[in-house]
Amino acid sequence: MIRITRQDGVQILRLDRPDKKNALTGAMYTDLAEALERGNTDPDIRCSLICGQPEVFTAGNDIGDFLQYAGKSGMTETPVVRFLRALVRNEKPLVASIDGIAIGVGTTLLMHCDMVFASPRALIRSPFVDLGLVPEAGSSLLGPQLLGHARAFELLCLGNAFSAEKALRAGLVNEVVEGDVDAAALACAREIAAKPPEAMALSRKLLRGDTEALFERVEEEIRIFASRLSAPETIAAFQAFMSKKKA
């Protein structure tokens, strides 16, 4: 589930499924998408903060749940796609707090954040190619822009894990926090929320630039991702993953 609270103009979105390492279900994606969409129209929400649990941000998709709804709809109108579109269309500053693993979408959503705080035990990884898939959330466009081609290839294609310090050096993380990373991220979010909202919105929009190319890339990734679900190497990779998980 997603626990949603508010504090001083900050909408706090906490991933709360620790028994499954915060693996994201369709219901959780829907809650996240609705929260971001709500933020666009609610003037009392000036910033959103996404955080997880101690030692785990998210293990990425709940594979079993994902395969069920992706198989029924062809993925086009699935909850995860709604969330990805909401990330691109999000108009309010977005902060993330990472403690522990951030896998798959737990990595790519960071590229949409304005500030990212990580604990020293954060571990960022996107094993899309290992599963016969392609990167998502516009990361194939944002990754090279943020990290440079070589680091983006290492993260998104090779699937290497980035430690908190490596992510900091690469520019994916703003600060590595030795103490309470959630408290540091919330303090930053509250600072953002306290600033003049119109000036903040205009300034953020200038920094982000035209997002239409990003939206088009997300849609292209979705089409390719959906087609890959029926590819023989993808099916074999998922079967191996599920067998390993059950062992």
Rank of each mutant, 00 (worst) to 15 (best):
D99L: 01
I101M: 07
I101Q: 12
I101S: 03
A102Q: 01
I103Y: 14
I103A: 08
I103Q: 06
G104M: 12
G104K: 04
V105R: 07
G106Q: 09
L109C: 04
M111Y: 01
M111I: 00
C113A: 15
C113F: 14
C113M: 15
D114A: 02
D114V: 05
M115C: 07
V116I: 08
V116D: 00
A118P: 01
A118N: 00
A118K: 01
S119T: 03
R121G: 03
A122T: 00
L123D: 03
L123Y: 05
I124V: 07
R125F: 10
R125G: 07
S126V: 00
P127L: 00
P127M: 03
F128V: 09
V129A: 12
V129N: 07
V129Q: 15
V129F: 11
V129H: 08
D130R: 15
D130F: 14
D130V: 06
L131S: 09
V134C: 06
E136D: 11
E136N: 12
E136L: 15
A137L: 11
G138A: 01
G138P: 00
S139E: 00
S140P: 00
S140E: 13
L141K: 07
L142H: 01
P144G: 07
P144W: 02
P144N: 04
Q145N: 10
L146N: 00
L146H: 05
L146K: 12
H149S: 13
H149W: 14
H149G: 02
A150S: 14
R151D: 09
A152D: 12
F153I: 03
E154R: 13
E154K: 15
L155H: 14
C157L: 10
C157S: 08
C157Y: 12
C157I: 13
L158E: 10
L158S: 06
G159S: 09
N160L: 12
F162I: 03
F162R: 01
A164G: 09
E165Q: 13
E165I: 04
K166L: 11
K166A: 15
L168V: 02
L168S: 01
R169V: 13
A170Q: 07
A170W: 10
G171V: 02
G171A: 02
L172Q: 09
N174T: 10
V176E: 10
V176D: 15
V176T: 14
V177A: 10
E178N: 11
G179D: 11
G179S: 15
G179T: 14
G179W: 08
D180F: 02
D180N: 13
D182S: 10
D182Y: 13
D182N: 11
A183G: 09
A183V: 06
A184L: 00
A185F: 02
A185D: 01
L186W: 07
A189K: 04
A189R: 02
R190I: 10
R190C: 11
E191D: 09
A194Q: 04
K195M: 08
P196L: 05
E198V: 05
E198Y: 08
E198F: 07
A199N: 08
A201D: 11
A201N: 08
A201C: 12
L202P: 05
L202Q: 12
L202W: 11
R204F: 06
R204N: 08
L206N: 04
L206E: 06
L207V: 04
